[in-house]
């Protein structure tokens, strides 16, 4: 917009009084060519559509949440009750399930994805790194519902038979590992999430590490640093970007729907045990949206969607800023 206004004075100086009358071609494109004006306006319009979609998304979801916001206020966030029959809705069990499963996923996935990214960028020779990079990226191409299917028939039975019983034996004194072992629950949901976000975090960390200037590595190596010590220098340089990558992974974990819905047990209860079934915001939407019979029930679900939207929007915005600060900053200095 601003460059069009800036462009306006130029013709008056170049073409004199003739161009002082308002000219639609010049208003739309600095070149003043009719084709350019139409072309630029059309492209501008489609970019505007993208903004309008997001604006409409916020408006539609927010306005449909109003009945629920009116009925429950801030109590919605702190109430444990979710009862469609009595019409009492509280989001706390879903918030708890979402936070716990995402944190569990991050605890597993962050070291793993950092390891993958460091290996591919800093340690592995190029001819090994290339195919492995492709394979790890393929992990991100697998649809959520396929992870869910695999989780139900492979991961859950495996955890039930070989992982959860020993955990209960050795660490059963911790509330985390108590209760009935079914293979379906918070732990299984968290692990499948960890597998799903690993390719995403490691891809961003790879970009961030690759953006760290080569001179940093050369300086470290010239001082006699070993390969690992050089890697630590690189990691320190990419710090904010790596934080951004982790937050990006968190955003993905929070919004992930199908695989979690199929594995987390879908019960709106708050339990300290990782073996217990839980419920996330995304999975309650997936399960109950088509069943919502009255307006308040539907509105409460849409308000859950609103919460999910804002949390992920803020998380993603913050993550982008952090990642850009590294990848952009370094490419700018490289140019200068």
């Amino acid at each position: 917009m601003s460059d069009q206004q800036l462009a306006a004075p130029t013709p008056s100086s170049t073409y004199g009084a003739q161009a002082r009358t308002w000219n639609w071609r010049r208003a739309l494109s600095p070149t003043g060519n009719a084709g350019d004006a139409v072309f630029r306006a059309a492209l501008f319009a489609s970019a505007l559509v993208l903004l309008l979609i997001v604006a409409a998304m916020i408006a539609a979801i927010a306005s449909n949440s109003v009945p629920s916001i009116r009925a429950f206020g801030f109590g919605f966030l702190t109430s444990r009750e979710w009862n469609p029959i009595t019409g009492n809705f509280g989001a706390l069990p879903f918030i708890y399930g979402t936070v716990m499963s995402s944190v569990l996923a991050l605890l597993i996935s962050v070291p793993l994805s950092l390891g993958v990214a460091v290996f591919l960028v800093e340690q592995a020779p190029r001819r090994i790194a290339r195919p492995i990079t492709f394979l790890v990226e393929l992990l991100a191409a697998i649809p959520s519902v396929v992870y869910g299917l695999w989780g139900i028939f492979v991961l859950a039975p495996f955890l039930r038979e070989y992982i959860q019983p020993p955990l209960a034996n050795w660490f059963g004194w911790l509330p985390l590992f108590q209760g009935t072992i079914t293979g379906i629950g918070l732990m299984t949901g968290g692990i499948i999430l960890a597998i799903m976000i690993t390719p995403i975090i490691s891809a961003v960390v790879r970009d961030v590490l690759a953006a760290v200037p080569m001179s940093q590595r050369e300086a470290a190596l010239a001082l006699g640093a070993t390969r690992w010590e050089t890697t630590r220098v690189v990691l320190a340089n990419g710090g904010p970007g790596i934080a951004g990558a982790i937050i990006l992974g968190l955003g993905r974990a929070i919004g992930e729907t199908m695989a979690v819905t199929m594995l987390i047990g879908n019960r709106p209860e708050i339990s300290a045990s990782l073996f217990a079934p839980s419920y996330t915001i995304a999975s309650v939407l997936a399960n109950e949206f088509t069943e919502a019979s009255d307006e308040l029930y539907l509105s409460a679900l849409i308000q859950l969607g609103l919460i999910l939207f804002f949390v992920t929007f803020v998380i993603n915005g913050a993550a982008r800023v952090l990642v850009w600060s590294v990848t952009r900053g370094t490419s700018d200095t490289a140019r200068a």
Binding site: G255, T257, G305
Partner: peptide, 17 residues
């Protein structure tokens, strides 16, 4: 910025919208 952030909005929220 909005495009990048929209990419991160959970697909189920798009469904709700």
């Amino acid at each position: 910025f909005v495009a990048d952030t929209l990419t991160g909005v959970p697909s189920i929220v798009v469904g709700v919208f």
